[in-house]
Amino acid sequence: MMAAVTIKKKKNKFSEAPVFTEKKDYRPEGVKETGLAFVGHEISEDRTTMNQFLHYDQLYTIRHGWNSKFFIGLLDGKIMGTRCPKCGDSWVPVRTHCWNLDCNLEKTEWVEMPLTAKVHTWTVAGWSGRSSLKRLPIILVYAVVGNSKVAIANELHGLKPWDVEFGMPLKIVFKPKEQRIGAVTDFHFEPADGWKPSPMNKEKERIKKLVEPVYEWVKTLK
């Protein structure tokens, strides 16, 4: 028979909890957590069909944990990447462990990346998710920051949508410090200083034709 084991209540946790001292609230007006609530219904004229309206609004905590340095870097106007000390590959977006199987999940080290990038591919959006509709049209690019092995998506500002080009050089521009929230929306791309668009061509004319109605449509949004 097994001997009884007394489990003592542990005073300390296995790891120290961080002490959070800097707190910021940038909640837009009218956003509140109401939890779950039935807020209305409708019934068809012949009373055979009913729709009910359920409202669900919940606050999530995204715990950035070991990735935190990237997001804190954004607040400081920096693009932080990671680099594998074994194979030397670096990345933005970051990886906290190297994914090259030869490196066997080696822990990566943080490196500050240059605020320059190059367009890998691009699109011009005339439609988007609910919270982005008013910003349309949006030029979205996947761009390679510094010597990153991967491309990161973000918006490209500062040029006509039809002028974006593959391979064009970019600079990373941050919002003013007081407007930053520690999210990727704190920065966007702009053409590098001195870059000039190429002359209009058939494809540019086509994109212009597709985009012009989008400007008009956005004006009609409340």
């Binding site: 990735n67 997001f71 959006a125 439609w127 998710g129 919270s131 979205l140 998506a153 929306t185």
Partner: peptide, 29 residues
């Protein structure tokens, strides 16, 4: 448009969701 945003939550929300990104945009690029 809310539906598009829900589906986009299967993208990496930390890096892609709020930069105008929904799936048709990623596919277009």
């Amino acid at each position: 448009s809310q539906g598009s945003e829900f589906i986009a939550m299967a993208s990496d929300i930390r890096y892609e969701l709020m930069v105008g990104g929904i799936y048709p945009i990623y596919y277009a690029a």
